[in-house]
């Protein structure tokens, strides 16, 4: 997804969830903007994982520690409970096994923040229903054959996955192009969702 299109509102939602002075691991950190804001606005110590060499160079230029890694290979390079927060923003739908990555994130972080586009958004449904075609929208701008989004899910799908893999949802924020959406209507009207998660076992 083109970073220019990525709503910075998503960053605001995430930053709100992070306690000051915590340690953060941002998976798929891109150009490091979120980590930079967390450092400035929350005094966090952060580290990024990124696969793209150009993004890595940009992060280094911002003084951000960045580790080149492929999320599909898990987080074996990271210790259990090494970070206060592990963040995965707009990337969940691009990995081969989102369920496994989620468990890995829960292992490495005391808290996990996941932000992703809600495929249940009504315009996606209408495109499929009336045009009989895979949806192409502002948040999902790709044709089906070229999309990096190989595991799109709805908000409700994600809640189910969390329950299945023993992950407890602490908070859930849904928005429609930056404006908050009530949880009851979220699966239909939210374009973006952001979850704060903890291990069900750890949360007891």
């Amino acid at each position: 997804m083109n970073p220019g299109n990525r709503p910075h509102v998503a960053y605001d939602e995430i930053i709100k969830l992070v306690e000051p002075r915590s340690t953060v691991l941002d998976l798929g950190c891109g150009d490091g903007e979120l980590l930079q804001r967390l450092r400035q606005e929350r005094s966090c110590r952060g580290r990024g994982v990124e696969i793209d060499e150009g993004h890595i160079r940009t992060c280094i230029g911002k003084g951000i520690s960045v580790f080149q890694g492929n999320l599909d290979q898990g987080l074996a390079d990271h210790e259990s409970n090494a970070y206060d927060y592990v963040i995965l923003n707009q990337t969940l739908q691009m990995v081969h096994r989102p369920d496994r990555l989620l468990r890995e994130m829960i292992r490495v972080g005391r808290n996990v923040i996941v932000g992703f586009p809600n495929f249940g958004y009504y315009l996606n449904r209408l495109q499929l229903l009336f045009r009989g075609r895979m949806p192409v929208t502002g948040t999902l701008p790709y044709e089906w054959y070229e999309t990096p989004n190989i595991h799109l899910c709805t908000l409700r799908d994600f809640r189910n996955l969390c329950a299945t893999v023993n992950i407890h949802v602490k908070t859930e924020a849904a928005s429609h192009k930056g404006r908050p959406v009530s949880p009851i209507a979220a699966n239909l009207f939210a374009t973006e969702v952001c979850f704060l998660l903890v291990d069900s076992l750890k949360s007891i």
Partner: peptide, 21 residues
């Protein structure tokens, strides 16, 4: 190289790593 990076990360040190293809 990754072994060194992992040790540094475990010690919460400032380290950036890239494997250039």
């Amino acid at each position: 190289s990754r072994e060194i990076v992992r040790a540094l990360m475990r010690k919460q040190k400032d380290v950036s790593y890239c494997e250039i293809s």
